[in-house]
Nucleic acid binder design. Structure first.
Lengths: 202, 202, 202, 202
DNA sequence: CATGAATGAGCATTCATTCAT
DNA sequence: CATGAATGAATGCTCATTCAT
């Protein structure tokens, strides 16, 4: 498997490495994962990995970037034919509900570890903030839509409501990070959904 | 057969070490902090530290334990002469408000890093859950009190409300972990306070 | 049964590779130059290079060999129609003068690095010595010529004088390896030229 | 062997490490010497070495610095009671003669390798030039003394003569770097000595 | 034949922990 | 008891060389 491989091949390999590394990072954490762990998991040579990523950190950042972007982009796609803002927000809650606690925990562990990592490196903090803003704007646009159609109360503070939405989502996830039953989690999402709608619909 | 050093001396020294290590862990994170960092910060010998704690990890766990216990205990103390449940909860919000964003961020970074660390070690996960339950119970007791005095609505699901309280608190903190202004943070606490009371008072 | 590629083509390619590698070795040194540096500089594939040279070391040795031989051969060529020994030696000094300090430094760096490299490998030491002897003989022949024509003093110790010539040349170059002005260098060559002639002409 | 060791102990250990590393660097060259080589040669742990020197490069530079300074300083010491400039210069030649070819070769290999290394790093080039200047000044002072006492010819260009002295010394050493007999080397030093004196005494 | 992706031994450096003094 | 020098396994990364396509 060697020379003159297609760009598609390279892209795929790159994705495979990222996926394998992600698996390890989720399993043991970024700092605790060694390159050898990744090598072992992927059954690939060290050199191969380093020919696609110049450092463990670059891999990590790239991975976080991809994940962060995917989150907002995936939603946008599904929203194409949802005219109602309420539907859009209910869809978001559905997505939360669809994710199993197990998945949630892995996702959150990765997410939080990267946040802590970013908190100690100015240029990453900046990137993180851009992502956070993207998520906030995404919500604000939905809410703006809802206000225009009269679905939501007219005196809604969009910025605050958007923050509240994510804050509720993050807080909830954090509560169930280390313990809790799937059913309790789902029912709390329902509870939160009600509260959020009570708040934005007045 | 002299007592050599008193127990009090030992306890104090132990506390000093823990405090110095905490400073470093907050500053750079647990994994990134080296024993030499702590030694340098404390102006103490490596051997001294190792005679009080058998490993860096033991120090970390002990420290987290102390912090977690202190949190609930401190509140309990102040609650002695607060008969009203509403006052007690408002007091909690006051404590959140009194903490500067800067302090919050440091506190949260330590808190989250330890949570991630605990998530990967079963025996620590257990300990963490005990703490989380303690915090939940603490809130539940307050709410129970509020229901008895009629301050809160009678059909309140105490367990859910308690979870909601902490969830709101955590979510809020997370929102402001990497960016955001002090004033925005404070006003969101106020907003959350209103929402929480609307929820528990019906 | 086609000749595929002609020998001439191969020789040319070989020369191109050697030239490109030389550029890199002079720039960064042998050990510090990676095959990738050479590949990048030549715009050629790794495989191509390895099909002409079995290792980086072989390339290096070949290159040094070529350079060493070229040095003496070039001179011999130009000497064809110089009957006077004095002219021949003056011509050598002219060649030194014509080389800019910048060129000299690059040339010397390569030369010295190879010498150090050779010093640690018996078979290369041998080869180096053959070259050194060639250079000495080359000078001795000139001087012998000069003695026959009576240009140089009759009691000249040819071997010593030849060593002295190269020793003067090397020492001078070494003096200016890391610093010094072009003009100082040139004037010292002149000075040395005078001294050498005073010595050999008596 | 451990805590609260004296400064003398540390200095000694530092010197031992430097000496051991020098041995390896001379043997295999700086780049080719691995930390493990040094560890093996010294029978010491890697950590111990790194607690005295922060990197292999720092060790190398320190070592070169020491050697370069030692050269001039040693001579200065011996010159205290040598009133005649001629004696001083003859003493220098004696020192050259006293050094065996074997020692010379090792010394020169280290010297040249460091020079090549320095040539590629601006801040080291600077340091090297300072040393070279020191050596030049050292000679110039001797010659100045000789002119004052009338030992040397009055129209001597001190700067040029000083350069010539070192240039002769370096060129000679280079000639014998890879081959040559001890006796030839010694007799060429004698020859050079004569030439130098003929030059400076007129 | 040419290509360049893959290999993996090798390297400099770090750091938690130990233990001689 | 306290000290801090010593240890050495572990880690991230490099690069000459190979060989499947």
């Amino acid at each position: 498997m060697s020379p003159k491989v297609s760009q598609a091949y390279k892209d795929e390999k790159r994705a495979i490495i990222l996926e394998g590394a992600l698996h390890c990072f989720i399993d043991k954490g970024f700092q605790a994962t060694t390159i050898d762990d990744i090598v072992r998991h992927l059954g690939m040579s060290k050199g191969a990995i380093y020919s696609y990523f110049s450092s463990k950190e670059v891999m990590y950042i790239q991975m976080a970037d991809d994940k962060m972007n995917a989150m907002v982009e995936n939603s946008s796609e599904d929203f194409k034919n949802m005219p109602s803002a309420e539907d859009q927000i209910r869809y978001m809650f559905d997505r939360f509900r669809r994710q199993s606690l197990d998945e949630l925990r892995k996702w959150l562990a990765f997410h939080l570890e990267f946040m802590l990592y970013a908190a100690r490196q100015p240029e990453l903090t900046e990137r993180w903030n851009q992502y956070a803003n993207k998520a906030l704007l995404f919500m604000q646009e939905i809410m703006e839509g809802g206000m225009k159609t009269g679905e939501f109360r007219s005196d809604l503070d969009i910025a605050a409501a958007s923050r509240l939405f994510w804050s509720v989502r993050d807080g909830l996830a954090l509560q169930f990070m280390l313990s809790g039953e799937e059913t309790d989690y789902k029912s709390m999402i329902n509870e939160m959904e009600k509260k959020v709608f009570r708040y934005i619909q007045g």
